[in-house]
Design a protein around this nucleic acid. Structure first.
Lengths: 234, 234
DNA sequence: CGCATGTTTGACCGACGTCAACGATGGTGG
DNA sequence: CCACCATCGTTGACGTCGGTCAAACATGCG
């Protein structure tokens, strides 16, 4: 089971570490790595399903790129309410979100492998190298764009619209051959969409009943009518 | 009665966003640890209450700093539903959110004066100057942090918790002598908090009834028990 | 096999939205 | 100066979408 991202070539950058303004593009970590000396390319580490990668308010020692698996970053309230801000899939960078301390927890949705780079190393590079600084800025802006879209979803969309938006997002991010497998459970989806797991389940059942969704099992999904779904997402 | 905003100097600069060499003032453009060079200090422009500053999907020609007044940045759905992502108050930068096109609309909540800088100028500077690049990165990260907090609010907090969180935010950002005047109406607050204006009104009335809030009028507020309110915000 | 984890589905409920009426405020023009 | 009107805020009655609680079913692993 490989995701679309794993199929992408990931050139491992032995390129001039100097300032190359060209590094601003749709900065993939891969892309931003281009501007880093090989010594910054980081080591690999694995986490078991459910394992915490870092906790809220912990020192932000590392920045992470997902190699395989999936990661959720969340905020928690004392009484257990949880808001997942984003799911990070292969190719995504996370842990960059702060200055010196994390402001969210991150944990593995399934068994997950990441590449990690010392936060300080990146930060030092960013202070010297304009290419690195702009690559990091592009990453922050991309996260910001996602968060802004998600605020609209959380603040103003109905349950149906939220779930459809989510399915389209997952389709875009991890569909292979028109089908994808969700790494996360219904509760995670609910905590991402500001719903309960029951509501998520009901909406998916409803869409399945309508025939707009194919389910070979609860996690394995194929969108049968993307146009219709896009209209439903508002 | 005068609001805090009315007490601020409001240079009326009735010139279009073109040339004004005279526009050099206190330089908190880039209120982070990095500061921008004086050459990047832009010209001044004013907008009437309700006037659009830029629209969704328009080319992002300028970046703005609020000098006086208040600005809301929103996303709209076709049927009129609106989500306000942020309010921008004096000292705040906005319009930076994108690469080449805006992804939100921005309009003046009240009569507002801004300083503006050509987006391209900033972008060029960021490609050359590591300090500028990092200043812009810091701004993006600050907006991201706010958006993440706001996702928690929109996804998981109750109406009471949302309104209290909002009041504490406004208190922090614009209280003078322990009191502040809201520049925005109940509908704006609702669209920021993912509630209806009626619910916002009811919650504020409730808090007022409990004595935890002082209201000399609907917009003029004093928090009588910040500790209690902080506890209520969860 | 047995237990833990996850999903579905139903019955019921409550927080918040909707609709509507009324009141307060302030700007404008006669 | 006041009458008028638009905008904004408050409050009540009622409806509903999604949450809560609960039970049954599925899946997979030690």
């Amino acid at each position: 089971m490989f995701s679309r991202n794993e199929m992408l070539a990931r050139p491992r950058a032995d390129m001039p570490p100097s300032s190359s303004p060209a590094a601003v593009g749709p900065a993939h970590f891969g892309a931003s790595c281009f501007t880093l000396p090989p010594s910054l390319l980081g080591t690999v580490h694995s986490y078991d399903k459910g394992e915490e990668i870092y906790g809220d308010d912990e020192p932000a020692d590392y920045v992470y790129e997902v190699i395989s698996g999936a990661v959720r970053t969340c905020k928690l309230l004392d009484d257990g309410r949880r808001q997942i801000g984003a799911f990070h899939l292969p190719g995504d960078i996370f842990g960059l979100e702060t200055d010196s301390r994390h402001r969210m927890t991150a944990d593995a949705v399934v068994d997950t492998t990441v590449r990690l780079v010392r936060h300080k190393t990146l930060e030092d590079a960013a202070l010297r190298d304009v290419g690195v600084a702009n690559a990091l800025r592009a990453l922050a802006l991309r996260d910001l764009r996602h968060a802004e879209e998600h605020m609209l979803l959380l603040g103003r969309k109905t349950a149906l619209e939220r779930v459809v938006t989510f399915l389209l997002e997952m389709d875009r991010r991890l569909a292979v051959a028109g089908m994808f497998e969700l790494p996360m459970c219904r509760r995670d989806i609910g905590d991402y969409l500001g719903l309960t797991l029951e509501t998520v389940s009901r909406v998916i059942s409803h869409l399945h009943g309508k025939g707009v969704l194919g389910l070979s099992n609860a996690r394995q999904i194929v969108l049968r009518n993307r146009q219709l779904l896009s209209d439903m997402a508002v």
